Simulated scan of single mutants.
Amino acid sequence: MDVEIAEERIFVLTERFSLDHAEGRAWARRADAFGTVARLGGLLNRSASEDYECVYRERRLQPFWHLHATAVAGYERTRTYTVAVSPSVRSVRISGEDVAAEAGQFRLSGLESCRDETSRQYLFDGLSRAENPALASYLSYPGTVTDAEALAEAARGGIVVVPPENKASMLVREVMSAAIGKIDADRVLEERVTVDLVDLVYRPVFAFRYRHAGKEAVIEFDGLTGDIRPDGATFEQYLGKILEPRFLLDVGVEAVNIFVPGTQLVRILAEQGVKQATQRREG
C-alpha cells in the first residue's frame, strides 16, 4: 500500500465583523444570556433591564480540522456467473466452445478487473475532536495561510488563540482507517490512500461576559456568520497560550508503518501556490 499525505497547513479565516460591532449586537441580546426570567423582568421593569455590566470581552480564534482523503484500489478476482436460458437449451457455443446448460441455466467463469475509488471530506471540532460536518459552512469564507509563530504573536497581542486538543497525526490515522476498506480480491494490483488536505482552520469568535443580579452569563458572536449564542463560553484560560508546532502533523515513515505494515509514505503538497505565497510573506 502507498500512502500520500499532504503538507500540513494553518488557515485563519478573515473576520467579517469588528469587536465593536459584535459587542453592540451582543449587548442588545444581553438579557437572553440569563434566561426567560431575566427577559420578562426587563419587559416589566425597564430600569432592571439596564442593570447589566460587561465584565469581560474576548476576541478568539477557535480551531477545527479539515481533512480530505481519497482511496484507490485496483485488483483482479475470478468469478463464476450463472446465465439463465430457455429450459429446452442443452448447450451454448461461446468463443468456439460448447458450454453445457442444465435446468434452464449455464455457468461461466471469468477474471474480473476491478478498480474502486472513494473520496471523502472530514471535519473535526478542534476542542471536542468530534466529527462535525456542519463546519463545512465556514469553508466558503476567505482566509490566509499562517504558521505557529504568527499565531503565537497574535496571542501575545491579546487574541485568545485556542490550541486544538487533537493532534493532526491522530486524525490522519483515523481518516486512513476509515478510507482503507476490505478488498475482495485474488490479486491486488494497486492500493493507495491519499490524504490531500491536512488543514488546521481557525475561525473568529467574540465572547462577552455579563453580570446581572449577582449572576454571570456569556454571549458568543460568530465573527463570520454574525450568529449570536446566548449560552456561550469564554476561553480565558487559553489567553497567551502559544500554539506549539507539536500540535501539527509530524508523521514519520516509522509511525505510519506501525499503523499500516509495509506502507510507503510520500509527503505531497496540497497546493504548490500556497507554499510559494507563504514563502513570499515570510520573505
Rank of each mutant, 00 (worst) to 15 (best):
S47W: 07
E97K: 15
L249M: 15
R211K: 14
G96K: 11
V205Q: 06
R93A: 12
R93P: 00
P63L: 05
E216A: 13
G240T: 04
K167V: 03
P164V: 10
R129A: 15
I268W: 04
F259L: 12
Q264W: 09
A178R: 15
P163W: 08
A130F: 08
K167H: 11
A33R: 00
E117C: 09
G96I: 09
E271N: 09
T225L: 13
G283K: 06
V274P: 00
E97V: 15
R59M: 11
V83T: 13
V172N: 04
L269H: 03
I10D: 00
G223F: 04
E153K: 14
F106S: 06
D222P: 07
I268S: 11
R280E: 03
P142T: 13
E15M: 03
G110E: 08
V162N: 03
T225C: 04
L151I: 07
A270G: 10
R203I: 15
R229A: 04
V89P: 02
Q276G: 00
A100Q: 13
S47N: 11
R93N: 07
E4M: 15
L67S: 01
A73I: 07
F124Q: 01
Y75L: 10
A136F: 08
R211W: 02
A213K: 14
A136G: 06
V72N: 13
G158D: 04
I228E: 03
A213P: 01
P230D: 05
R59T: 12
E190V: 09
A154D: 06
A6C: 05
L265A: 11
A22N: 05
V253A: 15
P261H: 11
F247G: 02
A134R: 12
Y122L: 05
T36C: 01
C54T: 09
L224M: 10
G181E: 11
A134M: 06
W27A: 08
P133E: 06
Y81L: 12
I159T: 14
H66R: 08
R192S: 06
F64M: 05
G42D: 04
I258S: 14
A84K: 14
L13Y: 01
F221N: 00
Q237L: 07
M1P: 12
F235Y: 15
R57V: 07
G223W: 05
V72A: 09
D116A: 11
V99E: 05
R229G: 00
D231V: 03
D186S: 15
R129F: 06
D186L: 10
L108S: 08
D186C: 09
F11H: 00
M176W: 09
I228N: 02
T225H: 09
E7Q: 13
